[in-house]
């Protein structure tokens, strides 16, 4: 029986971030967290191998504040979760994150397939998957939109800029998946209730052999990239759609925007 792990990141919902003032600083006051968008696809891949082919399926995450995510993720299909929750991970980079995840996965042991999202919603570095493959000594198979398990490995279709590449391999692999690989489920009430009975294992950094975490890069500044736009509503005050359309086209013409 194959053992599959999906890695997901618990991220701030970027739609709640507000850019403020001349300094374009970011305001996180009204922030909510979510499972990174494409990691829901990664989880769904594991869930479907679990349900259809009887694979063992676990979720893995790490961060400074990930405990709030456990119920949510467990309602999406994993049988259990292993995670590191440590304030030291408040600021991380791809190097540290992949070392922590590799540590957790080694601790779990004998994992055949690791599934990551194509990139995280916040940083979108698209690094953690292939870094993890290198650290674990697994094959790295990125940008996959079709995935099959074979007797002793996988067969995957990678979507690249110039076309599709179909690869086969034997042995363990880290796969990163594209959003079109599946449609992530919206957990049913039954799945949400079942999640409460599932097990979660909290690991300490020391237990996975990572006492000191040296960042490879330092953030000097993060500032919003607001655009100055006119924000003019064309159809205010009971105007018909026809009138609004004409007014807009006239406006674009007056601006010199129409060829």
């Amino acid at each position: 029986m194959k053992k599959i792990v999906a890695c997901y990141k618990w991220v701030v919902d970027e739609a709640d971030i507000r850019v403020e003032g001349k300094a374009r600083s970011l305001n996180f006051d009204r922030i909510k967290y979510k499972i990174s968008e494409y990691d829901r696809n990664a989880i769904e891949v594991g869930a479907s191998f679990n349900e259809k082919q009887g694979c063992q399926f676990l979720a893995v995450t790490c961060g400074a504040n990930v405990e709030a995510s456990l119920k949510d993720v467990l309602s999406r299909g994993p049988e259990s979760i292993a995670y590191v929750n440590d304030g030291a991970l408040e600021e991380t980079d791809s190097s540290v994150t992949s070392k922590v995840l590799a540590g957790i996965i080694k601790k779990i042991g004998e994992v055949d397939l690791v599934i990551c999202g194509e990139g995280s919603s916040d940083g979108y570095s698209q690094q953690v998957g292939p870094r993890l493959a290198a650290l674990l000594g697994y094959a790295s198979v990125t940008f996959v939109n079709k995935l099959e398990l074979t007797e002793d490995g996988i067969r995957a279709e990678r979507k690249l800029e110039d076309g599709v590449e179909v690869v086969e391999l034997t042995g363990p692999a880290v796969v990163t998946v594209l959003p079109d690989i599946n449609k992530p489920r919206i957990p049913s009430l039954k799945q949400i209730l079942a999640a409460k009975k599932k097990t979660s294992e909290k690991l300490e950094l020391a237990a996975i052999g990572l006492d000191s975490l040296a960042l490879k890069q330092k953030t000097l500044d993060v500032s919003g990239t607001v655009m100055e736009r006119k924000n003019i509503q064309i159809n205010s005050g009971g105007m018909t759609i026809e009138e609004a359309a004409q007014k807009l086209v006239q406006q674009l013409k007056a601006d010199g925007s129409l060829a």
Binding site: S94, Q127, G129, P130, A134, S140, T142, F143, K216
Partner: peptide
């Protein structure tokens, strides 16, 4: 490119070095 980003991240892990995407 997609291939380039994959290769860069693997290389960075092996060299234990920073990578900025």
């Amino acid at each position: 490119t997609r291939r380039g980003k994959d290769l860069a991240a693997q290389l960075a892990a092996h060299l234990d070095c920073p990578c900025v995407t």
